[in-house]
Design a protein around this nucleic acid. Structure first.
Lengths: 345, 345
DNA sequence: CTGAAAGCGCTTACAG
DNA sequence: CTGAAAGCGCTTACAG
């Protein structure tokens, strides 16, 4: 049952019906000059009447551009569902792809070597015209693969991680510093950070930035713990931070995403601690989730949708050759809400 | 900079290097019979040495199967980020695609007519080998389009909505009945439902099921309100339901997803109502989110990841022609947690 | 503007 | 198992 879809309509049929050559049809559908308005109209009408759509696979074989953008994500499948970041990022990417009539080729991979191999076969198989690379690690294996391939790419990550690839990034170092200084300004002297996956490059950068800020401010206590970004890990980390004696535990906690902050909120409630009186909580990314809790979550806000859109726009620049080059997107800004306040003691 | 990737390696080069014909290389890479182990090895070695990967676009032009599955999602981009459902569903789909070395072609569309057109050009352009269709409406425009096209498809939705298409669905009618009966068994006589988008077929089914269950149980009060699935809409609906005088307002609320239930929880807190003492809340879908709140959310649990996987498996059945046909996946089951209890009055 | 032709990189019979 | 050939449906010069 591989389909009974009658005799396939091809460019030849359209040309015959419009009384022109195949070449003319091709010109019309690729919006190239050299045809009169009248001819163009006749061609489009014929195509419409026959229900013809150009075969993208034939088109790309013949050397035209491929209107598909690849995105491989390397995180455990079961964790993706909850991270609002990805879907929002993807929807931002999509919003730009749609303008270019492009689609996203999405693949979940187990590790970066698999991803590197995938990129190579996608590109060599002419399945994609370019790719977005996310979640960079130090000494990332994708850098040496993408470069010699000639694959148009935009790397989402700090230039210190992405080598020679065109990259778009958020200035995590500055943002972490701002988060810590804000909490310190409220009077907090013992601050913790529940970070993301230790293997990720941006986690490494944030960790260093937190250390530096804590040192610069001469904090009395500074803790950092790595997680896998899941709510459960965030809950565990929070529980362990808050079980110390009141005088020894943090009075403020910064989270690397918002789902862990939500989990932290619930752990505080479960332990009988009031937010923000007993402990201040500061989320990251700031999806809609942060406004749905009680109290609402203060957060380092980040236009993730816009981030995705900018990455896609940059990729189209790289593909067409008139790229703007690497650049940061706006640094996350502090959005104070109900979960942060001066410490009560 | 459309890439300087040297002279492209083709099947011809591999054949030459392995000392065989192009046809033999093709047979080897498509795992077809007719080659000795030794020849096969020689071919794979040559391909590896040259870094060759078959051009999927040439392959599919030549008539072979296309290893790409389409998925168009028709919801406002900004709303997708927060709905854990989709990412979990997609990750379930991906888990099966990966086994088949397939990728997902994802596209956000504005309306179903655009989606119908997209399916047609994806299929005619040989961009996809099949597609997954979600979010069915009554008299869905995709049904009459997909059928005559011969496009292999799996429709996610109740057969009453998906016509002649192979479909996989959850029995929402039974699940809604179970949810209402559970709350009634706890002693609730005034129950509300905060539903999803009214235009969606499954919302219509759930609405009817709720009415029926309420009638069968002779509830003293039964409310239903439609939303857009967003947390904000869920919060608004909850607020309006709970502002009535204590004797007139619902003592239990069922939500059509979990994000709205989280929002409801926070509205109750904001209004000074205790959950579950003053009002019981029951979520739907049951992502990780439900275990991260305080109290934890009782929910109609649903293995969304498994659902996506089953849909993908079914699609591969349709594509290969030995499909199992339409069938339901397990009905969501009640998972009681901290947000439901007998009414206190 | 047209028309005939070559070529993209495969797969698929078909004769050996 | 091999080899030569046709064909998939386009695009891209090229001569008119």
């Amino acid at each position: 049952m591989t389909a009974l879809h009658g005799p396939r309509v091809t460019i030849k049929d359209v040309a015959a019906r419009a009384g022109v050559s195949k070449g003319a049809v091709s010109l019309a559908f690729n919006h190239k000059p050299g045809l009169s308005e009248a001819t163009r109209d006749r061609i489009f009408r014929a195509a419409r009447e026959l229900g013809w759509a150009p075969s993208l696979t034939a088109r790309s074989l013949a050397g035209a551009r491929v209107d598909v953008v690849g995105l491989a994500i390397c995180r455990p499948a079961r964790m993706l569902g909850l991270e609002p970041f990805y879907m929002e990022f993807v929807s931002g990417v999509e919003s730009v792809l749609t303008e270019h009539s492009s689609s996203l080729l999405l693949r979940l991979v187990k590790n970066l070597d698999e991803e590197a191999g995938l990129l190579e076969s996608w590109w060599k198989g002419r399945q994609i015209g370019g790719s977005i690379l996310v979640d960079f690690r130090e000494d990332d294996p994708r850098v040496p693969v993408a470069e010699p391939l000639g694959l148009p790419v935009v790397a989402v990550g700090h230039p210190s991680l992405t080598g020679s690839l065109t990259s778009v990034w958020t200035d995590d170092t500055t943002a972490v510093g701002e988060a810590v200084r804000y909490l310190a300004a409220l009077g907090h002297r013992r601050i913790a950070r529940v970070g993301g996956a230790a293997a990720l490059g941006h986690t490494v950068l944030r960790t260093a930035a937190f250390d530096e800020a804590a040192k610069a401010l001469g904090l009395a206590g500074a803790w950092q713990v790595a997680t896998d970004f899941s709510g459960e890990a965030g809950a565990r980390a929070t529980r362990s931070l808050l079980t110390a004696a009141p005088a020894d535990r943090p009075t403020a906690i910064v989270y690397d995403n918002d789902i862990m902050a939500v989990a932290g909120l619930s752990v505080a409630a479960e332990m009988g601690l009031k937010v923000p009186e007993d402990v201040s909580l500061l989320a990251w990314d700031d999806s809609q989730l942060c406004r749905l809790t009680h109290p609402t979550l203060s957060a380092m806000s980040h236009d993730v949708h816009g981030f995705g859109a900018e990455v896609a726009r940059t990729l189209f620049g790289v593909i067409s050759g008139d790229g703007t080059g690497s650049h940061p997107v706006p640094t996350p800004v502090l959005t104070p809400r109900g979960s942060t306040a001066p410490p009560s003691r």
